[in-house]
């Protein structure tokens, strides 16, 4: 059930994450997201968290890492479908103002 799927449209690569985004899942999907990103080199990487039922600081690490990777390549990074709990954890790290968040 825990997985990540991809869709590319108009220069945006969307990674749809599903499941509980903890250390276990973050470690499992990190390389898969990076592999797709570096292979396709889209204008924007969009991380869709609407299928995420739980997130802790490991999920935060995954977000921070992809954000940094996009910055390094001069690409845009955004989050989509982040629930109230995800937003609260982002805010704790002061990332709610740094990372673009879409509905």
């Amino acid at each position: 059930m825990d997985k990540v799927t991809f869709k590319e449209k108009n220069g945006t690569l969307t990674a749809f994450v599903e499941g509980e985004l903890d250390h276990c899942l973050a470690a499992a999907i990190r390389e898969r997201i990076d592999a797709e990103f570096y292979k396709r080199m889209p204008d924007e990487l969009l991380l869709d968290l609407s299928g995420v039922s739980f997130m802790d600081s490991s999920g935060l690490g995954l977000i921070m890492g992809r954000y940094a990777a996009c910055e390094n390549c001069g690409k845009r990074f955004a989050l989509q479908g982040a629930g109230e709990r995800v937003m609260r954890i982002l805010a704790l790290a002061g990332l709610d103002k740094t990372v673009a968040v879409r509905k």
Binding site: A27, R30, S57, S58, G61, L62, M64, G65, A93
Partner: peptide, 14 residues
Amino acid sequence: ENERSGMGFAIMQS
């Protein structure tokens, strides 16, 4: 290098 956010204890505290 393993992308730890450094927020674990801050979250526990909060």
